[in-house]
């Protein structure tokens, strides 16, 4: 009984506190609410330890069992340990700290950033392949989608106005009127869903935490 009611009571107390904080500007109360949010940040900081342990455990097991592609797991663990070690070294050590010229920042700028940029740039190719499938004219709806997409694309490039007169104005109308209407309709639904879910969690009707 207590195993269910205590987490529910805690969720209700702090959840209701945040809702009340939105309506009550009284300094004493908002200070308490901000303090609770700071506690959350502290808990999040500790969660990184759990995250690192999870990586070590999952990949350690993979290496231990020599599962498929287990060598990649060795690379993962080595890179994590190396980055962590350099990041945790005190700044006054020659190879420590995260300042300019430090090995940590060098690895971050010259290895991590280019890899992230590569992943992001892959998105362009994924968009092209997804668009190719989406714009196949197979039905009336798909035809409407393809025609609208062509108008929007032509209207978005500087030459569009010459290639298809009026396309720029049409694109603006499609984006600001048709698109916004649909988007706002979905947004209202999302907002109502988020509010009702929050209330269900605060009241313990829906419990993503604890056990039943």
């Amino acid at each position: 009984m207590a195993r269910r009611s205590i987490p529910t009571a805690i969720a209700f107390f702090f959840g209701a506190m945040m809702v009340v904080n939105y309506f009550v500007p009284w300094g004493w109360f908002s200070d308490r609410a901000n303090q609770v949010q700071e506690w959350g940040l502290i808990v999040v900081a500790f969660a990184y330890i759990l995250g690192a342990l999870n990586v070590m455990r999952v990949h350690g097991h993979k290496i231990q069992r020599k599962e498929e592609d287990w060598r990649f797991s060795i690379v993962t663990i080595i890179t994590m340990v190396v980055m962590l070690s350099f990041g945790l070294m005190p700044e006054h050590w020659a190879i420590g700290g995260m300042e300019r010229g430090s090995p940590f920042l060098w690895m971050f700028d010259n290895m991590y950033v280019p890899m992230m940029a590569t992943m992001y740039s892959l998105l362009a190719f994924f968009i092209a392949s997804a668009a190719f499938r989406a714009f196949k004219v197979r039905s009336l709806e798909a035809t409407l989608l393809a025609v609208t997409a062509v108008i929007v694309m032509i209207g978005a490039v500087p030459l569009g106005g010459i290639l298809l007169p009026g396309s720029m104005e049409l694109r603006t109308w499609i984006m600001e009127t048709l698109q916004n209407v649909g988007k706002r309709g979905i947004m209202i639904g999302v907002a109502l869903g988020a509010i009702s879910t929050s209330l269900k969690i605060i009241l313990g009707i829906e419990r993503p935490y604890g056990r039943d």
Binding site: G51, N54, V55, R57, V58, M115, M116, M119, Y120
Partner: peptide
């Protein structure tokens, strides 16, 4: 314990 796998807090590192 290997069901839940953490990758990275960084968006594209997790995506990769």
């Amino acid at each position: 314990q290997d069901i839940v796998r953490y990758y990275s807090d960084e968006q594209f590192a997790a995506a990769a």
